[in-house]
Computed example of a mutant assay.
Amino acid sequence: MEIRAATVLPARREPIELHTADGLTLVGELALPPERPPAATLICLHPLPTHGGMMDSHVYKKAANRLPALADLAVLRFNTRGTGSERGTSQGAFDGGEGERFDVAAALEYAEFHDLPNVWLIGWSFGTELVLKWGHDPLVRGAVLLSPPLHRAGDADLDAWAAFGRPLTALVPEFDDYLQPPQARTRFARVPQAEVVGVDDAKHLWVGEPYVRIVLDEIVRRVNPAAYPLPTEVADS
């Protein structure tokens, strides 16, 4: 069976709640491999909620639908403060990336309390700014950034990640609306351990199955290389 955009592979899926230090409850989902413990964990930070970003933004939903089965990964998705999706709406209100520091911390605390291994942060657009500003936690093994705008996160945040020392990969679409590969390589040069991967013909929202596959493959290559490359077909159940 070919893996298509709507394919949902087996996983142990459960609704979760995260509790922030400033008293909010955030809604989310944890998807675990169907039969084995996870080899690593992805904490997904979604695009800008004021422009439709949420835990179900399509790349993240497809990651949760595929990667537990194909790559033995745990996928933790959640709605940041004030953000709603089919799962529900998280308490609080959008705070432009500042109050969201507590949301990132709550997700990391959940992963630590539940013994989720080898935690990687995955940020997309606005989510990349949360990674760079608030992701410096000893639990974090590294991060992958999708379409980083480097708007709210600036040079000081890049310098802080450089000092943090964890691996950082930026997947940058050729035709991104905010930051394209040549400019991204210049900006991320401040981070010695950063790798910028330009993706030909892609756009900011990674629309289209070929681009989703590139994103998921590049994540898996760094987080659980034993599962790379991902298959494009699976046996019929």
Rank of each mutant, 00 (worst) to 15 (best):
A143S: 15
A31N: 02
A31V: 02
E233V: 13
W120E: 01
K62H: 15
H58R: 10
L42P: 13
E209P: 02
H151A: 11
P15I: 04
L9D: 12
H46P: 10
L70Y: 04
L216G: 10
R187Q: 14
V59A: 13
L130E: 14
A202C: 00
I219H: 01
P231K: 00
A71L: 05
R13W: 07
P34A: 04
G82C: 09
R13M: 03
V131K: 08
L45A: 01
R12T: 03
P148A: 04
W161C: 04
A156E: 14
E218Y: 06
L205Q: 08
W206Q: 02
R13H: 05
D236T: 03
K62E: 15
R190H: 09
P225H: 04
A106P: 07
Y178P: 00
Y60M: 14
E109C: 03
G135R: 10
Y178N: 12
D103W: 08
A93W: 00
G208K: 00
R4M: 09
A106M: 11
G208R: 00
T80G: 13
A69G: 01
P138S: 11
L73D: 15
S147Y: 01
T83H: 11
R81D: 12
M1R: 12
A202W: 02
V144L: 12
N118V: 09
T20V: 10
F102W: 15
L116H: 05
G127S: 07
P117H: 14
